[in-house]
Amino acid sequence: MISVSAVLYTTSIILILLGLYGALTRKNLIRTVISLDVIDLGVNIFLITIGYIKDGRAPIYVVGSGSLSDQAARMADPLPQSLVLTAIVIGFGVTAVALTLIMRLYEKRKTVEVSETRGLKW
C-alpha cells in the first residue's frame, strides 16, 4: 500500500522541479511567470501534505457532533493549512506585480522574449 503522503510529496517535488526547469529555460517572460506559479503550486502542495494525517478530518469544531475532545483527536494538522493560506496570498501578490512589470516592458519593447531584451540574459 502506497502511503498518501508519499504520493503527494512526489507530486509536489515533480511540480517544483518542472516549474524550475520552465523558469530557467523559457525565454517568454509570461511563460516564466507561469513556471513560477507552478513552483508555487508545488510548494503549497508540499506544505499542505505535511499536515496530512491518516483518517484526519477538517480542523473545525462542530457544535453538537460528539464531544469536543473526540473531534480534536481526529483533526488534521491546522498549522500547515494556515501557512499555505499565507503562502497563496503572497504568491498571488508577486504574480500580479510580475505581470504588471511585463506588461509595462511590453509597452516599451513590444516583446516579452528574454532573448530580445539585452539586460535579461543570465
Partner: peptide, 26 residues
C-alpha cells in the same frame, strides 16, 4: 526599460528563492 528589466530579473530570482525558503520551512 532598464529598470523594468532589472525589476523583472530581480523578481524572478527572488520568487524562486522564496519558494526554496518555503520548502525549507516546511
Amino acid at each position: 526599460e532598464r529598470s523594468l528589466e532589472a525589476g523583472i530579473k530581480y523578481m524572478i530570482l527572488g520568487s524562486i528563492g522564496s519558494a526554496f525558503m518555503l520548502v525549507a520551512i516546511g
